[in-house]
Every structure is written in C-alpha cells, then in structure tokens.
Design a protein around this nucleic acid. Structure first.
Ligand code: SF4
Ligand code: SF4
Lengths: 145, 145
DNA sequence: TTAATAAAAGACAAAATAGTCTTGATTCTT
DNA sequence: AAGAATCAAGACTATTTTGTCTTTTATTAA
C-alpha cells in the first residue's frame, strides 16, 4: 500500500470540499458523514492539513473548515506531504531509510523509476482536477473503503 | 512503503542463498547473522517460503534451508506473493479492496500504470539476477536497514 | 453575559505489524 | 539408544497505525 489511510482520508475530504466550491466553512461532521469516515479520526487528519496551510478552520457556530487556497493550486502531492510527511517521498519506495548511494542495491534504478512516476502523478494532479472528474459521482468513489 | 518488512527479509535471505550457490543446507542462524535480522523473526518468514515451495528445509545436524528451485527460476514476484499474499497485487495500489470497476475513481488509470510497472519489475527480476548484481558487495546492501 | 457550536489538543483503546521466546518434532552423530 | 542440532509451531510482547472519546478554547447568537 502506497499511501496511508490517513492520507487517503485527507485527499477525499479535500476533494469533497473542492466539489462544493463554496467559500463557506463546512463542518467536519458534515464531511465525515458524507465520506463515511469516523468523525473523530477525520478531525485528526484535517488538523494536520490545517497546520500545513492546506485548509483553514474556524471555530464556533458557522465554523468548520475550507480550502486555504484555490483547488487548482493544491496538488495531490501537497496533501500527501502534509500528512505522510516530506520524507515519505525522498526515501526509498521500499521504505528503507539510509542507503549508500555510491553503492546502491540492484533494484535501485527500477525503484527510482517507480518513484518518479508516482511523484509525477502526484505533482500533476490537483484537487480541482480530481474534483472535476468526480462531479456527478458519489465522493465515496474516490479511493473508497 | 510498498513491501512489508517480512517480504524484504524474505528477499534478502533468498538472494543470500543464491549467492552461496551451494546445494547444501544453510542454517537460519547463519542467514540471520549475516543479514543482521532477528533470528526468530527470520525463522517465521522462511517458514512461509518453505510452505510456498520456494525453499526446502531440513531438520537436524547439517540441516537448514536451501532454494527449492534454481535461482533463475525464482522470480522476485514469487517471493512477494508467498509472503504478502496473492492478493496484494490484484488489489488497488492504494490498498483499497472493493471498487466499482464500471465506475472507477479518477486516479484509477494512473494507479494501474504504476501497478503494471511494479508487476513487470517483479516478474522480470529473478533471484539469480539479484544475486549476480550483489556479487562482491555486502548482502546488507540489498534493501538494507 | 450566557448558552450553544465547532475545532484543537490530548488521553485512551483497538487492530495490524513486527519481533521474541518456549516447547515440540525430526534428524544426525556417537 | 542418547544427546545434540535444527526447523516447526504456537504463545507471548512491543511497536506502529488506526480509531475513539473527553476536555479545552474560540466564536457566535440570544
Ligand atoms: S539502494 Fe535499494 S534499498 Fe537503497 S534506496 Fe535504492 S532501492 Fe531502496
Ligand atoms: S478505482 Fe481508485 S480506489 Fe478503486 S482500485 Fe482503482 S485506483 Fe484504487
């Protein structure tokens, strides 16, 4: 599995926010209901995204969360980095941490290809892009389960 | 992380066995010492591989494990399937289980590309291939850590 | 100013993964 | 036959990830 569940939840929530295309705050309860994710857990996930300036939050009545930037300015990569961390893409696809790059393992070049492909997908895909493709579908369809 | 640690340990052990290029059994203790993996844990991992007919084991003095087939007949994929299970490659790269394929999510086609690439790497790489490239290096280099 | 609303923060619980150890079953050597 | 070597199997522990709940803080509205 490439992305953690945390990460997938974050993506789905941001796509849902983008689909609404409103400036108003949406409560996390509303998001968790629609996505059928645990409210408590989603709250945690979105806190990361708020800290990473992908979302803005507001407390109190009529409060909630909303995208901090235009949906077309938020790349999938931004969400992934905000949640799984900067490192998750600098390190080996296999999850290894320290390797002697002067003497890489026999799989290195192939893994790098994979990594490159994945990176380019995530950089080339914006939340807006995902949201557009989702129009007319249930949001559950985005990385459901 | 794409592969579990279990899986990586299994790969490393089988490459080490292939590098020895002997017909004799090698004790798990020897393998775990050289790979610097917990002996107990490696034992578990290799048990899976023995059940999957990738390794043969023999008890008692001069016993141990050895490759059940020629190293060039064992694909990386065989090891991965034996340990992480058949399903780990039929399912979504994202780790999702059930999706409506008539109505896939916006990322599906791109994930499939990734999956295809990964599958072809694993099918196209044999234990012998890895072992040859490792000659003259420390086996620790294969997916070290 | 008080009560209600909603996120933030932190404590707690459950599940999945990784790792350790003990006992039992074979096989060899003497 | 006895004892040592070695894998098999299962119980047990530790860590990480995922999920739940409670308390605190900020904000609005009456
Ligand atoms: S050398 Fe191998 S283990 Fe190290 S980063 Fe490259 S692919 Fe990963
Ligand atoms: S539709 Fe999306 S979630 Fe489902 S298998 Fe394809 S990529 Fe994975």
């Amino acid at each position: 599995m490439l992305l953690s569940k945390t990460c997938i939840y974050g993506l789905r929530a941001s796509v849902l926010l983008a689909m609404r295309n409103e400036d108003q705050y949406v409560t996390i309860r509303e998001l968790s209901d629609e996505l059928e994710i645990s409210f408590y857990f989603l709250t945690k996930v979105l806190q990361h995204m708020t800290k990473a300036d992908i979302l803005e939050s507001y407390k109190g009545p009529n409060g909630g969360v909303r995208l901090a930037r235009e949906a077309h300015e938020i790349r999938m990569m931004d969400v992934v980095k905000a949640i799984d961390g900067e490192l998750s893409f600098k390190s080996c696809v296999m999850g290894q941490s320290e390797c002697d790059m002067m003497n890489p393992c026999p799989l290195h070049s192939k893994w790098v290809e994979l990594q490159t492909k994945m990176t380019s997908i995530m950089n080339g895909t914006t939340i807006e892009g995902l949201a557009k493709e989702m129009k007319g579908r249930s949001v559950k369809t985005l990385l459901e389960n």
